[in-house]
Design a protein around this nucleic acid. Structure first.
Length: 862
DNA sequence: GTAGGGTTAG
């Protein structure tokens, strides 16, 4: 009896598994159907393996359907089990597919497929395969496209290797490929980029490529990027040998590089040359000039270029205005920058994201963050989307104020808006953490940066170098520089400049000069800033002749010395006590159109006072006033200090009144000078009054650091009991301090502390002075103070007060109340505290703020 | 697929 048919189809028993050839057949027939549907392939996914994929992609039946194969391959890569899609196992399939695409001239598809594959091929397996000898040979189209793809991926070094293989196989690359490769090489920072470019250029010519002007222009750009202007200019005439003529791009490239280096007379010559060739300047040419002038700070000339443009029927564009606005922002003339923005709007030139970024940055720079926020809101209203640079500017502003938590929050916001932090973001954060002395966090950010594939670059390096130098870890900085250099990374003149300055500050003139020579040997051209460091270092070491030689060298290199250069040398002559030479040099420079500013005036005044020529100083001061020139607090303090030193207290007080009237002071320096002189004259009561007045001034700040309570010991010993070895050591430390070798001094000090040997008071002062003067991190200064507290053998309350004085503490009470010192000792002591106080007023405002709690504790104890 | 602006370092 037949049972009735079941209402539903009974599930069939599982089919016997398909054999691999059957799977291949099935896929091929499905793909070969009129309307192949990838979805219908889904059940086969578990059976597909890379070898099967390869068989399918090399099938002759499907060879005529490259685009079907391409979608199949893309589909398979996204659906296959990840363990099966390791890039290296897919390479045979990829090559089969590419060959099909090339034979149908599907070059753009092939290129994007390659690019996509390369970006997931972290181990560069494909690159290795392409370089291996293959049978049959890899096609010219494949190698040619791969060169372009590796360039586009941002790795021209890998592209060059494939290019070299083409050369060995005598395969002629396409002109476009050559251009792409050259351009990619030139833009990729590497120490031998121009060399590589010339090599590629020559190889291409040998392989039969006819070079065009574009290719020459890229080479010209390469030379310009390395400041090899002579080579770049030579290339202009050499192009003719290849039947190429320079065009406006050729000229604009060199003009831009020259104007960025401030070589304006060369710019003028080249413009004439350009016109002689019948090439009219275009808008870019004019914009290059605007940019050049703005960089030199010649804003009037920059604005004149706009007039010139209009006369030649070329209207300025957004670029022109943006550069001009940036010039004004740079000069702190933010209001005029805003006016320019209005002007461009009137001309129907809409401000773009660059305009806003420039203005926002300008606002932050002139400490006007509320206007910056207004601009951010405004750009949103006007539909100008902030970009990564906008975020970076905001992040930088937080870093500048050491608000690193807020900076991190901004980074998070940036990511939420869909912008990944770039190398500028990371470098800004690294620099921010370096600046507050948090190396740990800085390194953490650097590792994070490495994790995203961004490499430590020249800016990262320089941030670390700068901080290491500032912390006087100069040898560590040197190690870092050499190891980076050995690995072939680019090192620029900033890296060298930072270290050279570091060595000078460390008193190591020889090492500094050696580095300078090393930099020159590498054909790295120092900037005016670096020259200024070198000249400054030489001056401080009293090597004035060498300093002048370097000034001449600077001029020979076509650089324009700035006010700092001249002031450094004038200061140098004063420093070595040769005021006459200082004036001679000053006059000579004035003849050469140097306009001395208040800085120069103060240097000269200080030089005169130092050599006891107070009368001459006053004459200079009066001349300066009669010319209606601006004076500042430094001017007054210089003269007041000198008058106090010479016992002309009343004259000094007269100047204090004058400076008060002009709202220039008095400041910490003024008080120190006057109080010192009052004590010297025995006018203790007036001195005390002034001390109180000064303390009043400093009451506004808030305490922010915890104070180490209960550590103060009250022992009233004075270090007369020190044994002879202690004395000898003390002397050694003091000597090192006078030579500026604080590092060595601290080293000996550390050893002595461990042994429990005390050093004398003035040695402690010398060390503390050094730390403060060298802007050592606060932690170091505090820890030295702690060590002093803990050194039972030598610790006295007076000593602690002295060190406190060194840190900017205001003494708010008559000291003899607290210190059981004799009348004479007390005066000596007070003077020392005042000296320390002067040192302290040299340190940054921020640094001083950190010591407010100490100050407060001192007043509480009264 | 060649040249120009805004963010970082002394």
């Amino acid at each position: 009896m037949d049972s009735p048919p079941p209402p539903y189809p009974i599930p069939l028993s599982p089919k016997p598994p398909l054999t691999p050839p059957q799977i291949v057949q099935k896929v091929i027939s499905l793909l070969n159907s009129d309307k192949p549907s990838l979805a219908s392939l889904s059940p086969l996914i578990p059976h597909l393996t890379p070898p099967l994929l390869h068989s399918i992609l090399s099938s002759e039946i499907l060879a005529s359907r490259p685009l079907t194969l391409l979608s199949f391959f893309t589909w398979a890569r996204s659906h296959l089990n990840p363990s099966q899609t390791l890039t290296q196992t897919l390479i045979p399939s990829l090559l089969a597919l590419l060959s099909s695409l090339f034979s149908h001239n599907k070059f753009p598809d092939a290129k994007s497929l390659l690019l996509n594959f390369i970006s997931s091929d972290r181990g560069h397996h494909l690159h290795r395969t392409l370089l291996l000898p293959a049978r049959p040979r890899l096609s010219k189209a494949l190698l040619d496209t791969a060169v372009g793809a590796y360039c586009q991926f941002g790795n021209p070094q890998l592209a060059v290797l494939i290019f070299k293989k083409m050369k060995r196989l005598r395969l002629q690359p396409k002109l476009l490929t050559c251009i792409t490769l050259l351009n990619s090489l030139v833009k990729h920072p590497s120490s031998n980029r121009v060399l590589l470019c010339k090599d590629v250029f020559n190889d291409a010519v040998r392989l039969g490529v006819t070079p065009n002007t574009n290719m020459f222009n890229i080479l010209i750009n390469g030379y310009c990027l390395e400041n090899r202007f002579k080579d770049a200019l030579e290339l202009l005439s050499k192009m003719g040998e290849y039947e190429c003529l320079p065009d406006r791009v050729s000229y604009n490239t060199i003009l831009d590089a020259l104007s960025k280096k401030g070589q304006l007379s060369e710019v003028r010559d080249l413009l004439v040359d350009m016109k002689d060739r019948g090439l009219l300047p275009n808008r870019n040419t004019y914009n290059i000039l605007v940019c050049g002038y703005c960089r030199m700070g010649w804003l009037r000339e920059a604005a004149q270029v706009i007039e010139l443009m209009t006369q030649n029927n070329l209207l300025p564009d957004v670029w022109t205005y943006n550069m001009l606005i940036n010039g004004f922002c740079h000069d702190g003339r933010i209001e005029e920058a805003f006016k320019l923005r209005d002007e461009m709007e009137n001309l129907k030139l809409l401000p773009d994201v660059v305009t806003f970024n420039t203005l926002i940055n300008g606002c932050y720079k002139s400490k006007n963050s509320s206007n910056a926020f207004k601009l951010i809101a405004e750009m949103k209203e006007k539909g100008v989307e902030p970009n990564a640079v906008t975020h970076n500017i905001i992040i930088k502003s937080f870093c500048k104020e050491a608000k690193m938590d807020e900076a991190s929050i901004s980074v998070r916001k940036m990511v939420e808006r869909g912008f990944s932090p770039d190398s500028v973001t990371y470098n800004t954060l690294i620099d921010g953490y370096c600046k507050i002395g948090n190396f740990g966090e800085a390194f953490k950010i650097m590792n994070e940066m490495g994790g995203t594939g961004l490499k430590m670059d020249i800016v990262t390096l320089n941030s670390f170098l700068h901080t290491l130098c500032r912390e006087r870890k100069i040898e560590e900085a040197y190690e870092l520089l050499s190891s980076v250099s050995k690995r072939g990374y680019i090192i620029d003149e900033v890296s060298y400049g930072t270290l050279i300055m570091g060595y000078f500050e460390d008193g190591n003139v020889d090492k500094a000069m050696k580095l300078w020579d090393e930099m020159k040997a590498k054909a790295i051209i120092p900037s005016v800033v670096t020259y200024n460091s070198l000249i400054g270092g030489l001056c401080k070491s009293g090597k004035m002749e060498q300093a002048i030689t370097k000034l001449n060298e600077l001029l020979e290199n076509g650089l324009v010395p700035d006010e700092t250069t001249y002031n450094t040398i004038i200061h140098g002559y004063c420093w070595v006590g040769n005021v006459e030479k200082a004036f001679q040099f000053h006059n000579k420079m004035v003849e050469n159109s140097f306009k001395p500013g208040i800085f120069t005036c103060n240097i000269l005044l200080h030089g005169l006072c130092k050599e006891g020529m107070l009368e001459k100083a006053l004459t200079l001061f009066n001349t300066w006033i009669s010319k209606g020139r601006v004076l500042d607090a430094v001017t007054y303090n210089t003269l007041i200090t000198a008058q106090c030193r010479e016992g002309r207290l009343e004259d000094a007080l007269g100047l204090v009144v004058e400076m008060e009237v002009k709202k220039l002071g008095p400041d910490g320096y003024t008080y120190s000078a006057i109080i010192g002189a009052l004590i010297e004259a025995g006018r203790n009561k007036e001195a005390e009054e002034l001390m109180e007045k000064r303390a009043e001034m400093g009451k506004s700040s808030d305490p922010s650091l915890p104070l180490d309570k209960g550590r103060d010991m009250v022992t009233l010993e004075i270090l007369e009991k020190s044994d002879s070895s202690s004395l000898a050591y003390s002397e050694q430390i003091r000597e090192l301090c006078t030579k500026g070798k604080y590092r060595d001094a601290m080293h000996i000090f550390g050893e002595l502390t461990q042994k429990g040997v005390a050093i004398d008071k003035s040695t402690y002062i010398a060390l503390m002075k050094g730390l403060v003067k060298r802007r050592k991190p606060i932690s170091k200064i505090i820890s030295l103070r702690r060590v002093i507290q803990d050194t039972e053998a030598g610790c006295t309350e007076s000593l602690l007060d002295l060190t406190r004085g060194a840190l900017g503490e205001v003494i708010t009470r008559p000291m003899h109340m607290e210190l059981d010192l004799g009348e004479r000792n007390c005066r000596v002591f007070q003077r020392k505290v005042l000296t320390m106080d002067t040192v302290a007023s040299n340190i940054d405002r921020d640094v001083r703020a950190c010591f407010v709690p100490w100050k407060k504790a001192a007043s509480n104890r009264c």
